[in-house]
């Protein structure tokens, strides 16, 4: 039974294709609430973990289980009535646990949502409060966050047990500038980077907590946000988005940019600009990068997907009849793209 009293899964196994995207199914939250985020999480009920979709509106977070390739069942919904939900924080290798960031204009609280193994009742517990500026789920069941008091900044790692209980906290050395985004460094196990309010990339050693380096991104692209980083041949490659970039004749209006930093000298060089194809307009609103694929919602309401290996815009997904796209996320496994609209609809596309 795919029907629930106030939620419904609408399936669609049609062959609608937009470039390299194929619509697999559509989730519709009939509560009519505005969708604020969407994500995926591994959920295990009877010894077999399944990749489930998590949708969030301001007052609730819902878990959707796949029944078949194109049908979904609303498994449970946590109601969060004290503070609005701002985002879901994916924890890459955690099962049966959803982390949500709550607050008014800014994140004021991080909460884990789980289901009791004893009586299947829904549970919530607060793991951090404060003026939280950035948060990211890391591998090995960890969560990093930056938070600000009037005088100082705290950058903290929280480790989780398999049961979802948080058991260990560790503080990293904080830079003077506020950290607004984090990314793990692929290729170096203990390296973490962040981007700051003064447009710098900072590098930490997660094991020792040391702040290793601060490198400036450049003045042409203010308020850069890091999405992905990898180390190769002695260089640190960082994928940045530029919500406030100015259009230039040579590069158009790049949504993402790949920059190579030499961490030893702090010098950098642009490697790749990811812009829209000629004839298309729109600025970056929000997006996500996974492996070699970058996706962004543009001001035009269209979703654009780029191939980071080729540097090309791979496909454009125009707004659906229900309205412009407002959210885009990659699934934790395989190449599925989750595209959300403000009315709570989430379309699941396979990307090839």
């Amino acid at each position: 039974n795919t029907m629930m009293p106030d939620h419904m899964a609408v399936s669609w196994s049609g062959s609608l294709r937009e470039g390299s995207l194929r619509l697999v199914s559509k989730l519709k939250d009939l509560s009519g609430s505005c969708a604020v985020d969407v994500s995926t999480v591994w959920w295990e009920e009877s010894g077999c973990p399944e990749l489930c979709v998590v949708t969030a509106c301001e007052t609730s977070v819902s878990l959707w289980k796949p029944l078949s390739s194109d049908q979904w069942r609303n498994m449970c919904t946590w109601h969060l009535t004290e503070k609005p939900v701002i985002q879901i924080v994916p924890l890459p290798d955690v099962h049966n646990l959803v982390c949500a960031a709550l607050g008014d204009l800014e994140i004021g609280e991080l909460r884990v949502l789980l289901c009791s193994s004893e009586d299947s009742s829904l549970k919530q517990s607060v793991v951090k409060t404060g003026n939280i500026k950035a948060v990211l789920g890391l591998k090995d069941r960890r969560l990093v966050s930056s938070s600000r008091t009037f005088q100082e900044q705290q950058v903290e790692i929280i480790s989780f047990l398999e049961t979802g209980r948080n058991n260990k906290r560790k503080t990293l050395m904080a830079p003077k500038e506020t950290v607004l985004a984090f990314a793990e460094v692929e290729g170096i196990r203990d390296a973490l980077i962040g981007t700051t309010t003064v447009n710098s990339v900072v590098v930490w050693n997660l094991k020792t907590g040391q702040l290793l380096k601060k490198m400036h991104v450049g003045y042409s692209y203010p308020a850069s946000v890091c999405h992905r980083a990898y180390s190769d041949s002695g260089l640190l490659f960082v994928v940045l988005s530029h919500p406030h970039a100015k259009e230039s004749e040579s590069c158009g209006n790049p949504a993402f940019r790949v920059i190579a930093f030499n961490p030893k000298t702090g010098r950098s060089a642009g490697v790749m600009f990811l812009s829209l194809p000629p004839g298309h307009t729109g600025r970056y609103l929000e997006g996500e990068v996974k492996d070699a694929s970058a996706a962004a919602v543009l001001t035009s309401g269209t979703i654009a997907v780029w191939d980071l290996l080729l540097g090309d815009c791979a496909t454009l997904l125009p707004p659906e009849s229900g309205g412009p796209w407002s959210l885009v996320r990659w699934s934790a496994r395989d190449s599925y793209l989750l595209a959300g609209q403000k009315d709570g609809s989430v379309c699941v596309y396979s990307y090839s």
Binding site: D190, N205, L212, S231, L236, N262, K264, S268, V271
Partner: peptide, 23 residues
């Protein structure tokens, strides 16, 4: 980008910066 633009490159930059940075 070439080495001359970015300065001398080290394959062990993470370990070297960890040794140089304040504990």
């Amino acid at each position: 980008c070439s080495e001359s633009d970015l300065g001398p490159i080290s394959l062990n930059w993470f370990e070297e910066l960890s040794l140089e940075a304040p504990p």
